[in-house]
Design a binder for these strands. Structure first.
Lengths: 166, 166
DNA sequence: ATAGGATTGTTCGAAATTGAACCAGCCTCG
DNA sequence: CGAGGCTGGTTCAATTTCGAACAATCCTAT
């Protein structure tokens, strides 16, 4: 088989290394954050993410589906976690007036408090591990990279039949 | 509270956006790959990763612990997945001579075949979503970013008491 | 040698995630 | 209208993951 054949089948070694390292770094980051949150604050990273997004939202509330979208998990997982958070008293469900199917999830004062207690811990971790060593050029570059990746993913989502087989 | 106070507690909005997008992109990538592999090739991304690493290793084999390290998951998860792969006939366990505790996991011919069938599919996906739009500068920059993140993580692992509280 | 500590891999129970199935309410077009 | 399709959310079984506990083996320092 020719060189082009190899190229089409496998990644160039250096490129492959980048991809591998990407996977490792993301997993390790996730793991670190998760562990820290659980040990020090008794919540999962997904739970923390939910609290963050709610705090960000208008009225400190959000719809289930939107939550699932920004968190990037299955809807059923959101239902599960919102139940947990609700049992913990960090979150409340509210009926939605404009759409009788919908439910709003709203941060409770206790939820906000818990978030504000946890945030410094994990934000400093994110800074140390992820952001502190970036100079301006680098963070601009990273922003651009994330942009193209995001666009590529959008494109694939929009057109699901994007080379579906093999 | 002053501006510095805010800075120390929350991320600057733009920086926060980068971090958020990073989380979303990584999750979406993972999700895409996983789905594609399951639908077209009947294996998980973790299982695929295991096959890849084994194919890479000397003699197409690897120790359990090393596998857990490169895949970045709990040891018990590796045990679980190696059992599955072994039931599928894609992988074999072998006793380790030099260390009686150890076990080697070895790719079977069927495993190699399965990997070679799946690889083009997911590699082209990785290219399309992740790599194709990177010019030389960017991929060099990405490599450097991954390097610093990796070093930061190593540093934290080496020194677990790295600001443990909050 | 040998005791103490570290490492290897498995087992176990608990928790999380997923996709499919499902019900309701919405919305559009004939 | 009102029938069909779409969307929002929940339920359910199956899969996966995790960490802690454990047993076996290795290694090191006395």
């Amino acid at each position: 088989m020719g060189a082009g054949d190899f190229e089409s089948r496998w990644l160039r070694p250096d490129v492959n290394a980048v991809w591998t390292r990407f996977l490792q770094v993301t997993h390790r980051l996730e793991h670190h954050i998760d562990r820290r949150l659980q040990v020090n604050h008794g919540i999962t990273h997904t739970q923390y993410e939910i609290l963050v997004r709610l705090a960000d939202g208008d009225e400190r509330a959000m719809r289930m589906s939107d939550l699932a979208d920004v968190i990037v998990t299955a809807k059923s997982a959101v239902t599960y976690q919102v139940n947990k958070l609700s049992e913990m008293g960090l979150v409340e469900r509210h009926k939605c007036d404009s759409d009788n199917r919908g439910t709003w999830v709203k941060l409770t004062p206790a939820g906000l408090e818990r978030l504000e207690k946890a945030a410094p811990c994990i934000l400093s971790l994110v800074r140390e591990l992820f952001l502190d060593d970036l100079n301006c050029d680098q963070s601009a570059e990273l922003d651009k990279l994330l942009g193209t990746w995001s666009d590529n993913l959008d494109e694939h989502d929009r057109n699901p039949s994007h080379r579906p087989d093999h």
